[in-house]
């Protein structure tokens, strides 16, 4: 479903659709979006852009623990980890994205990585999951400033 312009937050060149939550913990830059009884997890536009082209992606966990690594991703010969925004059970892995991780660079909010069953309803009520415009803007501006300092 196409979102209206006011439902998308723009911080400099980065867009953040507000139909989902953004994981600030560990500077993970992952999004989580409820979809019925499940939730989808993917990479936000800031990470998709700053990491460069993603060449490889692999899922390393069967169960997600909040704040723990669940995937390896390689770009520019650097292997990073993805830290889960929630605890839960992986129900489905998006094989299309595993085979072609560049889909994440091209379309970070469509290219979900895993579908999960949340460990509890409280998983989406954590403080480090942001959807508030002001908090999200402040965090992303901080992150942009860190990059610009380099």
């Amino acid at each position: 479903m196409e979102l209206k312009a006011e439902q998308v937050l723009k911080v400099k060149e980065y867009e953040f659709p507000l139909d989902r939550l953004y994981y600030k913990g560990r500077n993970a830059h992952l999004w989580v979006k409820r979809e019925g009884e499940t939730a989808l997890i993917g990479i936000d536009a800031f990470l998709a852009e700053s990491a460069g082209y993603l060449n490889y992606l692999s899922i390393t966990a069967e169960k997600l623990e909040k704040g723990e690594a669940f995937a390896n991703v390689e770009s520019a010969k650097f292997v990073s980890k993805l830290y889960s925004p929630v605890s839960g059970e992986i129900l489905e892995i998006n094989q299309e994205v595993i085979e072609n991780p560049r889909l994440i660079n091209e379309s970070p909010y469509e290219a979900w990585i895993v579908r999960v069953k949340l460990a509890s309803e409280d998983e989406l009520k954590q403080e480090d999951l942001l959807s508030d415009r002001e908090k999200l803007t402040a965090w992303i501006e901080e992150e942009i400033a860190r990059l610009e300092e380099e």
Binding site: S50, A51, G52, S75, A76, F78, R146, L147, E150
Partner: peptide, 9 residues
């Protein structure tokens, strides 16, 4: 420690 991979290298 730089954040960006390119800056790190």
């Amino acid at each position: 420690t730089p954040v960006k991979t390119d800056s790190f290298y």
